[in-house]
Design a binder for these strands. Structure first.
Lengths: 244, 244
DNA sequence: GCAAAAGTGTTAATCTTACACCCATGC
DNA sequence: GCATGGGTGTAAGATTAACACTTTTGC
């Protein structure tokens, strides 16, 4: 590149100085943490610690740290709040209206997470943190209700095609539990026979040749997610056929 | 709320102070601007003005301003660069690895935009801004290639179900143009008869009873998007049936 | 009249939906 | 023995995919 051309370019350092004014916005992450219990979809909330939102519930979140990747921050938040590692997390979107946060200009990136509520309960430490049934949530601090709804919408889209739902279930589960969970997420009732055919076709499950043993009726078979689909993996290249 | 409880809460002001360290990250927006010309899907790029990326192309973007909503910033960027108002824009995701920007810690939120390349050409002012065919883009400044790919993926998902594609076409268009555009976006060939049936079923178009008049072959009918679907509107509540 | 694309319908295959009976277990 | 859910198949309807010929225009 000729020197003359180079002269016209700013260096990163000079740009940083000229934009100093802009380095005055904080970024947070907020997590919509879904759990499943007693046939209900729930989310984990914490009592807001801001006086402005006293008595209101809010999502679990935190400011991101200067030396932390954006997408790493929600893992840290979940680790701190629930003790859980290796949770399923997915970015949903960023929210940044000017006055969304009373502390100043804060833009937040929202993630949704699917965790096994039983695992979490063993590690719960903070008694300001509680599970809430989604339908009972009328109001949340900040714009968290809107964020929750965006995450729920994303969850509903994703469970249909991608094997993410299993993060909400124990390792071994029956088809009834799985169907109850789909119904809780989608808010619809599914036909049992058709549901089982659909799941069989997806080929996501291994029959582990065990039965339920704690039910007051005929026990069902137990299944596991196939191991190559586990681990919140970045989805093998499932090239969906385009249908226009 | 009892006063004792209030005392334990931070006020927004005190929180701001305790988090001052975190107000040291800049936020930018970057736009993946798609256009359609000569049966090719293109995106609008600008020569990077950072010495670190001399000679590299980058997305159009800018830092967000302290008093600007996050989702408003990309409209400003498009207005400044292309002169266009009322463009279609949609947030795709945020990218924030620590070292993605040489000027410091910058997290960017990516948007995709669909514009009519002909409108734009009348208003192009900056000769560092050019349309590029997507397949020829091997490398971009920053992490912009990755951002471009995320936006292209989102575009491919959206055109199938939602009437967004028309933002890339002139007001009046033939079904051939529409099919060419779908093919360019999805990278597949579609059957003409089946395509026309599918489009007819969606009921997106008005037959305006005009014909093409500039083609060297039998002219096709012209159509318009139905007016109630125009305007980049927030999609009427199209409750997709869940298919599990 | 020839090149180029417009316009159009049918059939087979696949997928989706609706629906009912017997079975195994705990109590 | 009865209540509870487990397990299973079929037929009708809807959607999708494959496929070819005639028509209209510009040149």
């Amino acid at each position: 590149m000729p020197t003359e051309a180079l002269k016209k370019l700013k260096t990163a350092e000079s740009e940083k100085i000229s934009h100093l004014d802009y380095f005055n916005i904080a970024i947070s992450v907020d997590c919509v943490i879904f759990g499943f219990e007693k046939k209900e979809l729930k989310i984990l909330l914490i009592k807001s610690d801001l006086a402005e939102f006293a008595n209101k519930w809010s999502l679990l979140g935190d400011f991101i740290k200067p030396a932390e990747d954006l997408d790493s921050a929600p893992y840290r938040v979940l680790k701190q709040r629930t003790g859980l590692n290796d949770v399923f997390l997915q970015q949903v979107g960023s929210f940044g209206t000017i006055n969304r946060h009373p502390s100043g200009r804060v833009i937040t990136t929202a993630y949704y997470s699917l965790i096994n509520i039983k695992h979490h309960q063993m590690k719960i430490t903070d008694n300001e943190v509680h599970w809430h049934m989604i339908e009972t949530i009328k109001e949340l601090a900040f714009d968290h209700k809107q964020i929750m709804e965006a995450c729920l919408k994303r969850l509903r889209e994703q469970v249909v095609d991608e094997p993410v739902i299993f993060n909400l279930l124990p390792e071994k589960f029956s088809l009834r539990e799985l169907q109850d969970l789909y119904q809780a997420i989608l808010g619809i009732k599914l036909d049992r026979r058709n549901f089982r055919k659909k799941i069989a076709m997806k080929n996501w499950l291994d029959d582990i040749d065990e039965m339920e043993d704690d039910v007051p009726h005929r026990p069902g078979k137990l299944y596991k997610l196939k191991t190559d689909l586990k681990n919140n993996k970045p989805l093998k290249s499932s090239v969906k056929k385009a249908k226009v």
